[in-house]
């Protein structure tokens, strides 16, 4: 009787079993929460992705209700690569406004909402200098009690804007608006591209963000 299965059927079966086992294990890990595909791809957004913080600081209160501008705490956003985290001195300016000033000797260890991956470098200053508002990427932070990401912050998302920056650009002077502030007058994205001298074809080579 001729053979029903070719010789390689053994190998195919074994490989299939191995892959099935692998898939089962991975599915189990995902179900147990050891591996979170959303976090792996960096695409989790929304309030459920809010990161717990060691202090009850609320942006909704400080930036929204009281109306303190972003730069009071994130002072270097227009000057350098980092937006900056507030020094204790800044918090104390209002909360410990005493004379003589008290000794400040503790530091708060904030949990980053979206740590940037090793090998990726982002420069806040140049984006701000191109009129991109804080809310464009970070969303309506002044409505958040606890900050969560509203964009995926994946490489694809960055590239989408780099390849077509016109919708995100803003005229000079208007980029510190929060989402709630009235939008700036309608502008022609192309005109802004020319104004800033941006060439999208030169914005998506690897060394723009990776080194």
């Amino acid at each position: 009787m001729p053979q029903l299965f070719p010789r390689r059927a053994d190998t195919i079966l074994r490989a299939a079993v191995a892959l099935a086992v692998l898939a089962l294990v991975l599915a189990g890990l995902v179900a147990r929460g050891v591996i979170d595909p959303a976090r792996l791809t960096g695409a989790a957004t929304g309030a459920q992705a809010a990161v717990p913080q060691p202090s009850d600081f609320s942006h909704r209160l400080h930036a929204g209700e009281i109306g303190i501008g972003c730069r009071m705490c994130h002072t270097s956003v227009a000057k350098g690569p980092e937006a900056g985290y507030p020094q204790q001195w800044t918090c104390a300016s209002c909360h410990l406004a005493l004379d003589p000033k008290p000794e400040l000797d503790w530091r708060v260890a904030w949990n980053r909402v979206r740590p940037l991956q090793e090998g990726v470098y982002f420069h806040h200053g140049i984006h701000v200098a191109r009129g991109i508002g804080c809310a464009t990427c970070h969303g309506p932070v002044e409505t958040m009690i606890r900050v969560f990401p509203v964009r995926e912050f994946t490489m694809q998302w960055c590239l989408d804007c780099h390849r077509d920056p016109a919708p995100a650009l803003g005229p000079p002077g208007a980029q510190f608006r929060t989402a709630a502030a009235p939008p700036p007058p309608a502008h022609e994205g192309g005109a802004l591209l020319a104004l800033y001298g941006i060439e999208p074809s030169r914005l998506d080579h690897c060394y723009v963000c990776h080194r």
Binding site: A78, V128, A129, P171, P172, Q175, F176
Partner: peptide, 10 residues
């Protein structure tokens, strides 16, 4: 000041 974020006429 960098050229931005402040317009030249400010």
């Amino acid at each position: 000041y960098p050229a931005n974020p402040y317009p030249a006429d400010w």
